[in-house]
């Protein structure tokens, strides 16, 4: 599998030609057509914000929310980057869709055996040592494929080389714990529809904080409940032994 791969998307270089989407559709055998939002037939889509184009796609998080949410481990993160889905395991609970901070998975609502669809970072191509279809198709180099570490260095270089051209942030470097899709932008990310309030902590930590208390609840709880049972039971036994008559117990003052 080798190094963790990633995409570096330079928003200042994107001209909105949509070659990435066309290549993606061809690679994944999806129906052709110009689509502006993610759908079952578009795993990536360009949206325009004041003359700048932003590519939406699965961010392939390092510690993916969807992977932690899935009750049957139908989603998995591969060491070389892609977050993959297996429909054979999926029970269709849609918790991944609810949980994904980037709102990526699309559901086959029309099917009677539905699953989700999303970008798989061209995992089969990566195995052959090829870059993703979208990066290969990009005529301006706005989407660049490579090792994540190297792309981070390159992104930093581009930002520092021309101070003022970019805002000093690599979106995806640390957001939700880091992703395999990195963005640099000439304008603040909030203005391009990015959610910049997600924080640097991986989302799965939020539920793990609660889940990690489960063993404690079980351990302490069972001892406590058994203890309470023992004490109340003992109290009854003692009361009975002492020969106090039945009317004394608790609140038997009903008329």
């Amino acid at each position: 599998m080798g190094q963790k791969k990633a995409l570096l998307i330079d928003i200042s270089l994107c001209v909105g030609c949509n070659a990435c989407q066309a290549a993606c559709k061809a690679e994944n055998h999806l129906p052709e057509g110009d689509e502006k939002t993610l759908s079952l037939s578009a795993f990536t889509a360009l949206s325009e914000h004041d003359g700048l184009f932003v590519r939406a796609m699965c961010q392939h998080c390092d510690i993916p929310t969807c992977v932690s949410a899935c009750p049957v481990a139908a989603l998995e993160k591969r060491a070389d980057g892609p977050v993959l889905y297996s429909a054979d395991k999926c029970i269709g609970c849609r918790y991944c869709m609810q949980a994904c901070p980037f709102h990526i998975p699309r559901y086959e609502w029309k099917s009677t055996r539905p699953g989700i669809k999303k970008c798989i970072l061209c995992a089969p191509r990566l195995e052959k040592g090829l870059p993703t279809a979208c990066s290969e198709a990009c005529p301006t180099g706005a989407t660049k494929f490579g090792d994540r570490n190297e792309l981070l260095i390159e992104a930093t270089n581009r930002i520092t080389a021309d101070s003022g051209k970019y805002v000093p942030k690599i979106y995806g470097k640390n957001d939700v714990g880091g992703t395999s899709v990195l963005y640099i932008s000439p304008v603040p990310f909030e203005k391009l529809g990015f959610d910049t309030r997600l924080g640097q902590e991986p989302m799965p930590i939020l539920t793990m904080n609660a889940l990690s208390k489960v063993p404690n609840v079980v351990g302490v709880g069972s001892v406590m409940l058994a203890g309470i049972w023992w004490i109340t039971n003992r109290r009854e036994d003692v009361a009975r032994e002492e020969g106090s008559n039945k009317q004394d117990s608790n609140h038997k003052n009903r008329g």
Partner: peptide, 14 residues
């Protein structure tokens, strides 16, 4: 599936 395919990190699994 949750009976045999485990993901203890998932609240849904619990």
């Amino acid at each position: 599936h949750p009976l045999v395919m485990w993901n203890p990190h998932s609240v849904m699994f619990e």
